[in-house]
Amino acid sequence: MSTILQLIFRSLETCSIYALAALGIIIIYRTSLITHFAQGSMAMFNTFVVTWFFTSFSMPLWASVLAGIISAIFTGFLVDFLVIRHTKKVSPVGKQIITLGLIIVFLGLAPMFFGVATLQLPRFIPSGEVVVGGAAISYNAILNISLGLVIMLVLFYVLHKTKLGLAIRATASNEQTARLMGVPTQSVTMMAWAVAGVLGVLSGVMIAPATSVSVWLMNPVQISALFACVLGGFQTFYGPVLGAYILGIARNFLTYYVSSVWGEQIMYILLLIFLLFRPNGIVGKKYSKKV
């Protein structure tokens, strides 16, 4: 029992990281109709910014994270302003390729600004844990889990209860009609890119203490987040969050009970098989294509 509880505790922390990254991807997908492959590399870049402020200027961690958030907003604005805004006429495949180009740009920029050495980022709360039912959970994990939940709740509140959320949802469902109705879709899209950037850097800061800050920092997160979106379906905002939690818990259980080397691979194969039966994900809806 305590092992299962321990596994769940450990999963929940990674789950909230995946969920934040997945939310970033889904917000971009819904407002710009782009599968945002560069979410991870943009997050990696901004996590480097956080680490740079933390190590080079020995600023406190919270201030560095704040600086990282500001830089995330800025990079989000910049990417939308310089690139995405001008791709209205580009085919969907072309848009995907553009985000792949963005990956290259950020993968190249990060070592140029911050060097090739891998850096370390500490936890928010360095030590201490509580024991619940024989399973230990660190204060930092509790902070990450609750922070993730709070951000998600705020985001869902904004999306569903405020005028701004209405504008985002209107843009998501049909950009052209939304513009005709007076929704400033350009600003909405720009803000979506900034929000995605912030979600990315937060997930980056949360995952960084577990590994080291390198250009490959966000690769596992990015892949899990994309699969969370696939599992949850690209049509709703809460589907990917659900997908992220299922994915994170399933991964830890499979690696613990089945195989520590092949557990992750088995999970992805199971996921692909699941998609054969429910191609649009758990809560996905099917839209019929028009000729």
Binding site: V83, G94, G101, I103, V105
Partner: peptide, 12 residues
């Protein structure tokens, strides 16, 4: 980086 920028420019 130039490769990345080139991709974006060519697609656009």
């Amino acid at each position: 980086i130039v490769n990345g920028v080139l991709i974006i420019l060519v697609v656009m």
